[in-house]
């Protein structure tokens, strides 16, 4: 008996299976690579050989791709990332007061008081200072993203990089690099800049109290953890499954939902072999011209998304009730 959580983020797709004591049994971390459907299928291919459908008694999705993922896997709940992350964090540590979560295109701060989320903030319309930006810089410098943090740790001193905007930061980095600064120092400077930006922008007006959990894909970057500690002046903690927290939270929430509904809507791992693809079209029904996405499974339409009037999405009945 396992609960499954699927976190479809902009950069990675994470699948977590937890047991009834909410202990992590299985984790799969995949790159979304711009195709959330394929990423979920790839994950299911791995799981299919290890688990029976009947072993999954609840399934939840989260992340910016949660609606599509929910439709294709038949999730019991599609939950926002803030609640999912807070749920998972509180499960491992009741004393957590602040959650710093930096993912592919979002960064968040969640303030918790007595086990309840009392405040949160997210980056606004722009994704400066998030994982996708670090990814892009790693690629530009031809350093595997996994080693990015180690480079920062090697630096003896730091270089100041403009952190407010990803484009500004990139030009600043290139200018410094062309002046001959060492790569390690530039990378450390970048970490410092991102932390400065986070504290001054997302964390503005919020008191960051310990205990702080640092989660999301960027938490893998030791340079970022150190930069946060230097800025805040106390230790911050990266949970063991920092990259799975969203998925774990979604699984926990799904398990609570199934207690109420009595039965999971999970459609099984077979979808790994099915031909799932999407087509989008501009609806001509009114001048809004919504871009509607149709999701097909073996030529059957299993879901519609993206219409404002629900003319299309209501056709998918149960699936879109979550929308």
């Amino acid at each position: 008996m396992y609960y499954m959580g699927v976190d479809v983020g902009s950069v990675s797709t994470d699948i977590a299976l937890i047991d009834k004591n909410y202990k992590l049994i299985e984790k799969i971390y995949l790159r979304t690579k711009g195709n959330p459907i394929k990423a979920v299928q790839e994950g299911f291919k791995i799981l299919k050989s290890k688990y029976y459908d009947s072993e999954i008694t609840a399934a939840g999705t989260t992340g910016s791709g949660r609606m599509v993922a929910s439709a294709i896997i038949g999730a019991d709940v599609a939950k926002n990332e803030i609640t999912a992350h807070a749920t998972a964090a509180l499960e491992i540590d009741k004393d957590v007061k602040t959650i710093i979560e930096i993912g592919g295109q979002d960064s968040k701060i969640i303030i918790i008081n007595n086990g309840i989320v009392t405040d949160f903030a997210m980056n606004t319309v722009c994704a400066a200072g998030t994982g996708s930006f670090l990814d892009r810089q790693a690629e530009r410098l031809d350093i595997p993203i996994e080693e990015f943090g180690d480079y920062a740790a090697k630096a003896v001193s730091t270089v100041r990089i403009a952190g407010r905007c990803a484009v500004f930061a990139e030009s600043d980095m290139i200018h410094k690099q062309q002046l001959g600064y060492a790569q390690a120092e530039i990378i450390r400077g970048l970490c410092d800049a991102l932390v400065r930006n986070y504290i001054n922008n997302i964390g503005k007006g919020k008191t960051i109290l310990p205990k702080v959990l640092f989660q999301g894909g960027v938490a893998a970057n030791k340079g970022m953890k150190t930069a946060f500690e230097n800025e805040l002046g106390f230790e911050i903690f990266v949970p063991e499954n920092y990259d799975m927290m969203g998925a774990i939270g979604a699984a926990i929430i799904a398990s609570e939902k199934v207690i109420k509904t009595g039965k999971t809507r999970f459609r099984g791992f077979k979808l790994a072999d099915n031909n799932i693809f999407s087509r989008s079209f501009d609806c001509e029904g009114c001048p809004n011209k919504c871009e509607v996405v149709k999701i097909y499974e073996n030529n059957n339409i299993i879901g519609y998304f993206g219409d404002r009037c629900t003319k299309w999405s209501s056709k998918t009945g149960e699936i879109t009730k979550l929308a």
């Binding site: 910016s64 791709g65 609606m67 926002n80 803030i82 609640t83 997210m122 319309v125």
Partner: peptide, 19 residues
Amino acid sequence: GEAGINTRIEAFRDMLERR
């Protein structure tokens, strides 16, 4: 793209509910 705005409103509702 509505995912960003949906996430924020949903999370806000969850927070208010629990508060």
